[in-house]
């Protein structure tokens, strides 16, 4: 079986769209609400989850035949926890401001349902390469939703994108204009509503496949 066969392509693209972890499986919502108030932490969080899912998938897949069945969840947790700690250390060393913004949520990747779900449902039964593709696909599927939500929340909540001002200063009430930032967008509750909107649009577009 070649590395880029149709089956492997489907493993990769499935979670991006028709089997999206957030939009279809509704997993990983907790962190999606917490880190999306601005675009930059949302992207870093998405990438971190992608990297951790992919590599923990590969590691578990490589040792899947040796793992004692009774402690398999514990072994999976050790692998994920070790990877998360490493990523968290790297963030602290190289993108300090982002790691401050993400604060506890990097550590909480360990409890992200997407990771444990992929390890248990996919990596335990499949080879390393397929598991790698599955991990990347799921991570990016998760990241895509985070980016959409983060974009809308930062634009409407702060009037900025990546910290750059988009809404002209003169348009604000303070400067005599009519515009005011929507403080609701900075609250996690609005993220839940936005995620629901994403799921709604996704279901509406993919009506046929969902039946």
């Amino acid at each position: 079986m070649s590395l880029f066969s149709k089956e492997n392509g489907a493993i990769f693209t499935g979670p991006l769209n028709l089997n999206n972890p957030i939009a279809v499986q509704v997993l990983g919502i907790c962190s999606a609400l917490a880190v999306t108030s601005q675009l930059k932490p949302a992207i870093v969080m998405g990438l971190s989850v992608t990297v951790i899912t992919a590599f923990s998938n590969v590691i578990i897949s490589l040792i899947r035949k040796t793992i004692p069945n009774r402690i398999r969840i514990i072994v999976q947790l050790v692998v994920v926890a070790a990877l998360v700690t490493i990523v968290s250390n790297i963030l602290k060393a190289y993108v300090y401001d982002v790691s401050v913004q993400l604060s506890v949520y990097v550590g909480l990747i360990i409890t992200n349902c997407i990771l444990m779900g992929r390890l248990e449902a996919f990596a335990m039964q499949n080879g390393p390469w397929e598991s790698f593709l599955d991990g990347i696909g799921n991570g990016l599927g998760y990241a895509a939703v985070l980016v959409v939500v983060g974009f809308v929340r930062e634009l409407l909540g702060f009037g900025t994108i990546f910290g750059l001002t988009i809404i002209p200063e003169g348009a604000y009430m303070e400067a005599g204009g009519l515009y005011i930032n929507n403080g609701m967008m900075t609250m996690p509750a609005m993220a839940l509503i936005l995620v629901a909107c994403v799921i709604w649009v996704h279901r509406a577009v993919n009506k046929e496949e969902n039946k």
Partner: peptide, 12 residues
């Protein structure tokens, strides 16, 4: 035998 007690403990 990946299910034996000894193997499990050593593995962990």
């Amino acid at each position: 035998n990946t299910n034996s007690n000894v193997y499990t403990i050593v593995y962990a």
